[in-house]
Amino acid sequence: MTGVWALLGALAVAGAIGVLLKVREGRISRRDDSSTADLPAPVRELLAPGVTLVQLSTTFCAPCRHAKVVLRDLADRTEGLTHAELDITNLPDVAARLGVMRTPTTLALTADGTEVLRVGGVPKRDALLAALRPHLVPPSGG
Rank of each mutant, 00 (worst) to 15 (best):
V94N: 15
L109D: 01
T89R: 10
L86I: 11
T106M: 02
V69N: 09
K68Y: 06
V122E: 13
H66P: 00
L128F: 07
D32L: 10
G3N: 04
R102P: 00
G142F: 02
V70D: 08
L8V: 07
H83N: 10
R102W: 01
R97W: 08
T110Q: 04
M1F: 06
A127L: 12
E45R: 11
A37P: 11
E85K: 14
L109H: 01
R133S: 08
P123G: 12
L136V: 02
S34W: 14
V4C: 00
P134Y: 05
V69L: 13
M101S: 09
R118V: 05
Q55S: 14
A37C: 09
R133H: 05
K68A: 14
R102L: 06
T103H: 04
P139L: 03
L8C: 04
V51D: 11
G26W: 11
R118M: 05
R97I: 09
A130K: 14
M101L: 13
M1G: 11
L7K: 02
A75R: 04
G142N: 01
L39M: 14
P63A: 03
L39W: 14
A37D: 15
P40T: 12
N90W: 15
S29A: 14
G15D: 00
R97G: 14
K22D: 10
W5G: 01
P138E: 06
A12E: 01
L117D: 03
L7Y: 05
V116H: 04
L53Y: 13
L8D: 02
G113Q: 01
I88A: 15
R125G: 05
V100C: 08
L136N: 03
V43P: 08
T36R: 13
D32P: 15
R44W: 03
Q55H: 15
M1H: 08
T2P: 00
G99R: 11
A111C: 00
G15W: 01
G141T: 05
D73E: 14
K68I: 00
T36P: 12
D76F: 02
I28G: 05
L39K: 12
L129R: 12
D126P: 02
V69S: 12
K124Q: 13
A111D: 03
V4L: 09
R65G: 02
R65I: 01
V4R: 09
G18P: 01
P63H: 05
D93H: 15
R77T: 08
L20P: 00
P42A: 11
V23T: 09
V119S: 08
V23E: 08
L39R: 12
F60M: 06
S57D: 15
D32N: 11
L132G: 06
V43Y: 08
L81P: 04
S29T: 15
T58V: 07
V70L: 07
A41K: 14
E79G: 08
R44F: 03
V43W: 07
L74G: 06
L117A: 05
E115N: 04
M1T: 07
P49Q: 08
L107Q: 02
N90F: 15
L109K: 01
R72L: 06
V94P: 15
D32E: 14
T114N: 04
